[in-house]
Design a protein around this nucleic acid. Structure first.
Lengths: 209, 209
DNA sequence: CTCTAATTAGAGTGGATACTCTAATTAGAG
DNA sequence: CTCTAATTAGAGTATCCACTCTAATTAGAG
């Protein structure tokens, strides 16, 4: 349906639904949360919830869109600028993404399962992922030709990117299980231990542009 | 409850429940599968299912125990033998674990979420994980003192292990999303790209024991 | 102010679900 | 064969949930 609010109080209602859903999903997991729970926490009637969203899946998709959009912003901007990102900057951004993942904790835990049962969500995810890996891949190739990283064949580059991606996506949720508190620095160290051995000492300056 | 079957036909019943549940969980995800579905696929009555298991969570826990047990077997044996595992052998075993993960695909997708909502399961997982990382950690330290890998401080070793663990746990499920078929060799390559840079050329022979 | 469309409440419905209970059946010991 | 305990079937229950419908209320244009 994707109804669009016209008044500002309506926007507040729609947003309150999303906020309430996010809170509850993070606390109890999507499976244990019903639309009635969400409506109650949002302080509205169940009927009103269905006025704004056609079902629970749509709420989940909307939350995912919020997450993906925020993530996307980190990588938006001049294509050229993006391509000037240094390895250190990449690690910083990937680790920063973890802060986002923390806000949408339920996605870190459940995304794979959700994708398995919601083809619509799966399609959205696939699109995002494809764009992202393409960017990273291009970036890594650029590093290679600039002599920033050790020479690697294309397969090696793809694997390296994939390894970093997997870690960036999962370290937070997996780390939380260890009981000890998890900080952004931990994620960055984890990523660095993978990437660092491939970095070459700077020769002079990377030829910019 | 953990009822133990006495007759062999009873064992078959209990196992059929587990098999049916595993199939259905892998196909549709745990949330979409009811105890009635499981009983139907197993070809028994709902009442009979509740004779053997107290609820759905217990079935899930039992399946996880099966998975964890099979995994554990790969690393059982003489402590000394385990400590003689080479990096290449480690990669092989980690990748072999992926075959197991494939059989229990629903766990690859849902484990983090399940752990979040089932404290009992979470405790079991924590125990397994602790043992496992302790083993890997000891192994890596041994490699370090034997000159098999580059010298790393303890934090570095822990990070390296954690990175490998994260990838081993997740690459399969994440890879399946890319549409292209996923093979065990892919996982091994992914793990190798992380571990390889830390390997030193063999000096002579690792002093055994 | 008035009229229309947007928004909201809240009761209600059909269906499913987890789980229980009782009674029937079977297996195996002696 | 007989007796007991294990096993199984299947109907039944209380609950809950997703979602709908109608009617009330509000917001804003003119």
């Amino acid at each position: 349906m994707l109804r669009t609010p016209t008044t500002s109080s309506a926007r507040r209602t729609r947003d309150r639904i999303l906020d309430a859903a996010l809170e509850l999903f993070n606390e109890r997991g999507t499976a244990a949360v019903t639309t009635n729970h969400v409506a109650a926490r949002a302080g509205i009637s169940p009927g009103n919830l269905y006025y704004w969203f056609s079902d629970k899946d749509e709420i989940i998709r909307e939350l995912y869109a919020g997450f993906a959009g925020a993530y996307e912003e980190m990588w938006s901007g001049d294509e050229a600028d993006v391509m000037d990102v240094t390895p250190a900057e990449l690690l910083r951004r990937l680790a920063a993404g973890a802060a986002l993942s923390h806000r949408y904790a339920f996605l870190s835990r459940e995304l794979l399962g959700l994708l398995h049962s919601d083809p619509v969500l799966a399609a959205e995810y696939a699109a995002v992922r494809e764009r992202r890996t393409a960017t990273f891949d291009a970036l890594a190739r650029r590093w290679r030709s600039a002599g920033v990283i050790r020479p690697l064949d294309d397969q090696g580059i793809a694997d390296l990117i994939q390894a970093l991606w997997v870690i960036a996506e999962t370290w937070l949720a997996l780390g939380e299980l260890s009981g000890t508190s998890v900080e952004s620095a931990d994620g960055e160290r984890l990523l660095r231990v993978v990437l660092e051995p491939y970095l070459l000492p700077a020769r002079s300056e990377v030829t910019s542009r």
